[in-house]
Nucleic acid binder design. Structure first.
Length: 542
RNA sequence: CGGGGCGUAGCGCAGCCUGGUAGCGCGCACGGUUCGGGACCGUGAAGUCGGAGGUUCAAAUCCUCUCGCCCCGACCA
C-alpha cells in the first residue's frame, strides 16, 4: 500500500490517505452506506470530542488505557471518542419518548481515536481510524434480535460486494458487556486474530472463545513419586529429560489478580493459556506474576513450580480433569510424576487453553481448523447497560418506562481495503476487486510522443468517463515497462494499451489485471470490452 | 508495560567496533543516445549524521540523558 501510493505514515499508527487510497475508502463507504440505508439505517455525525460526564455515567471513564483524555481551557475534562455508545444513549435519552419511536438504526462513518498500546501491521491497527459504527434502539430483546440479524445480513452483503472472503464467528463480548457478539473475519496471514472452525457442524469462534477437546495421550500407569530433573526448566526440557510425551506434563503459571490476589493456573504442557479465557474464569484481568512473586508465593523458582501443597487457589484447564501428569515439585531441580488433579490437590476447572488446529470441536468432536484472520467487522448485543446509565427510556404500550435495548455494530473501511489487498494481491502488486478499485481502467499510451497513440488514449479515457467507467491516463513520458509495472502495482482491474498494434492495425489491448487475459479491440469497443471482462470476473470471483 | 532493534541526502542503506576530508544505490535537474515489460552515458544539485549535554586538540563514531520509529510479547470497548 505504501509502494502503490495509497497511504503514508505520519507517526506510529497515524496515517495520511493519499488520493488513490482515498478513492478506495470512498468506494467502500458508498457500499456501506447503501447497505445500511437498505436496512433502514439513518446516517448521522457524532462529535469526536466528548465531555467526560457521559463516560463517567456509563462507568467507562476510568480503566480504559486506550482513551485519549484532555482538558479544555476551562479545565473541563474531555476525551476523544473511541466508540460512541455513550453519545448514542445520550441522544436516545432525549429523542426517544415512546415505543412508537422505536426501532431505530442510527449510524455514522466517523473517526475514532484510540491510544493503542502497540499500533502495528500498517493500516490494520492504528490509533486514529475511520469506522462505520451503527447503533440500534429497540423496545425489547426480540426486537434487538431482529435488528442484530438485519445487521449481520447487511454485513455479509457489504463484504461480499467488496470482494472479501469472510467467516462469521462467535466472539467475546469483552468489556462491552451484553449477551452476544459476532465478528466478521477475513482470512489472511497478515491478520492479528485467529479463529477456530468446524467443517462438520459449522461451529466457528474466535480462539479467545473457542472450546476444543484435545486428544488425550496414552496414559501410563504411574505411581506418585518425586523425580530429579536437573537443569530442566521448560516443558520441552522436562519432557525430553524424562523421555515422555509433553502432553503428560502440566504447565503451572502463577498469575496475579488485582482483587483476588495470586492464582495458580494449570494447562497441559503442550497447551498455551489464553489470557482472555483466564479473565472470564477469574472475573478480573490478571497479569503474569514476576519471578520474585513466584518465589514468594510458591517457594520455588519459575520452572520448578507446581500445584502440590501450595496455599494459593488453583484453576486448571478442563483438559486436566482426566489423566495423570508430571508437575513441578516446588523444589528446584525436581518434578513429581503421577499427579492427578482433583485427587492430589484441590482445584476448580475452567476452559483456559487456546484451541489448536486438529483438536476436537467443542460441539461435535470433529477436528477443528484454525485460521489467521483480519477482523473487518463486529456486532454486539448490548442490552440496556448504556441506556440505563444515560437514562434512555421509553414509555411502553401500558405507559411504563422501560430502558431502550441497544445493539452496537462496527465496520473498519481501512481494514476492508487492507484485507482486499492481502487476499487478492499477487507477485506484481495489488489486484483490486472491481467494486472498490480506485479506478476501473488504466490507459497506457506506449509512446506519448506519438500523436496518434496519445490521441487515441485520450479518446479512450474520455469515452470511459462518459460511459461510467473511471479511468486514469498514464501520459508520463516513461518507457512502457515502467508504466506496465506501475499499472500492475496499482492493481487497476483493466489496462488498456495503445501502442504499435494501434498504429499498424488500429487495435488496442484490453487486459485483465487479475487473469492477465487480453483482447484486442478497436478504440470504440474498449468500454464494451471492459464491461464484458467485468461481467466475467464478477461471476467467477469468490 | 516487558524484551530487542534502528535513527546518516527525498527514499533505501554503508561508514561507528578501532575518533581525524561524509559515501553508495535509487530518485531528482541538465545534455545526449535509447523507446512494447522497471534503458544507457556524461554532468550536477542535495546531508543540522534525530535532539541535548559531556569526554577530547578533534565526535556520525566514545559516554550520559532524551525524542522518534520498527519488531516480538502483553493489551486491544
Amino acid at each position: 500500500m505504501l509502494r502503490a501510493g495509497l497511504v503514508r505514515q505520519l507517526a506510529a499508527g497515524i496515517f495520511v490517505w493519499l488520493p488513490l487510497g482515498q478513492r478506495v475508502l470512498d468506494k467502500v463507504n458508498a457500499i456501506v452506506r447503501e447497505e445500511m440505508n437498505a436496512i433502514g439505517g439513518q446516517e448521522i455525525t457524532m462529535p469526536v470530542i466528548h465531555p467526560a460526564e457521559i463516560w463517567k455515567q456509563s462507568g467507562r471513564w476510568d480503566g480504559i488505557p486506550e482513551m485519549f483524555k484532555l482538558k479544555d481551557r476551562h479545565g473541563r475534562e474531555m476525551c476523544l471518542g473511541m466508540t460512541h455508545e455513550e453519545v448514542i444513549a445520550w441522544l436516545a435519552s432525549r429523542e426517544i419518548r415512546s415505543y412508537r419511536d422505536l426501532p431505530q438504526i442510527w449510524y455514522q462513518i466517523q473517526t475514532k481515536e484510540r491510544d493503542e498500546a502497540r499500533p502495528r501491521s500498517g493500516v490494520l491497527r492504528t490509533r486514529e481510524f475511520v469506522m462505520k459504527d451503527s447503533y440500534t434502539l429497540d423496545p425489547d430483546d426480540a426486537a434487538l434480535d431482529r435488528s442484530y440479524d438485519a445487521h449481520a445480513a447487511a454485513y455479509r452483503r457489504i463484504f461480499e460486494r467488496c470482494g472479501l472472503r469472510i467467516h462469521v464467528v462467535q466472539s467475546d463480548t469483552g468489556m462491552m458487556g451484553g449477551h452476544s457478539a459476532h465478528e466478521f473475519m477475513a482470512p489472511s496471514a497478515a491478520g492479528e486474530d485467529e479463529i477456530a472452525m468446524c467443517a462438520a457442524c459449522g461451529y466457528a469462534a474466535n480462539v479467545e472463545l473457542a472450546r476444543s477437546v484435545p486428544t488425550p495421550p496414552a496414559l501410563p500407569a504411574w505411581t506418585r513419586e518425586e523425580v530429579a530433573t536437573p537443569g530442566a526448566r521448560t516443558i520441552a526440557e522436562v519432557a525430553a529429560y524424562l523421555n515422555i510425551d509433553p502432553r503428560l506434563t502440566i504447565k503451572s503459571l502463577l498469575y496475579v489478580a488485582p482483587k483476588a490476589g495470586p492464582v495458580l493456573v494449570l494447562v497441559r504442557g503442550d497447551h498455551s493459556l489464553h489470557e482472555r479465557k483466564l479473565l472470564r474464569a477469574v472475573g478480573e484481568e490478571c497479569r503474569a506474576a514476576h519471578p520474585d512473586e513466584v518465589r514468594e508465593h510458591l517457594g520455588a523458582p519459575v520452572g520448578s513450580v507446581g500445584p502440590l501443597g501450595v496455599r494459593v487457589p488453583i484453576i486448571a484447564d478442563e483438559t486436566l480433569r482426566q489423566g495423570t501428569y508430571v508437575v513441578g515439585a516446588n523444589r528446584e531441580g525436581f518434578h513429581v510424576r503421577g499427579v492427578t488433579p482433583g485427587r492430589d490437590f484441590e482445584c476448580r476447572f475452567a476452559d483456559l487453553h487456546t484451541a489448536v488446529a486438529g483438536e476436537g470441536c467443542g460441539q461435535c468432536g470433529a477436528p477443528l481448523a484454525v485460521e489467521r484472520v483480519i477482523e473487518v467487522g463486529n456486532i454486539f448485543k448490548l442490552g440496556t447497560k448504556f441506556s440505563e446509565a444515560l437514562g434512555a427510556t421509553y414509555l411502553d404500550e401500558s405507559g411504563r418506562a422501560r430502558p431502550v435495548v441497544m445493539g452496537s455494530y462496527g465496520i473498519g473501511p481501512a481494514r476492508i481495503a487492507a484485507a482486499a489487498v492481502e487476499q487478492l494481491a499477487d507477485q506484481d502488486g495489488i489486484v483490486w476487486p472491481w467494486a472498490i478499485a480506485p479506478f476501473h481502467v488504466y490507459v497506457v499510451p506506449v509512446s506519448v510522443k506519438d500523436r496518434a497513440q496519445l490521441g487515441a488514449a485520450e479518446e479512450i479515457y474520455a469515452q470511459c468517463w462518459k460511459q461510467g467507467l473511471e479511468a486514469v491516463l498514464d501520459d508520463r513520458d516513461e518507457r512502457p515497462g515502467v508504466k506496465f509495472k506501475d499499472a500492475e502495482l496499482l492493481g487497476i482491474p483493466v489496462r488498456v494499451t495503445v501502442g504499435n498494434s494501434f498504429v499498424k492495425e488500429g487495435v488496442v489491448e484490453v487486459r485483465s489485471r487479475r487473469t492477465r487475459q487480453e483482447r484486442r479491440v478497436s478504440v470504440d469497443q474498449v468500454v464494451a470490452a471492459t464491461r464484458a471482462l467485468r461481467g466475467e470476473e464478477s461471476s467467477t470471483s469468490t
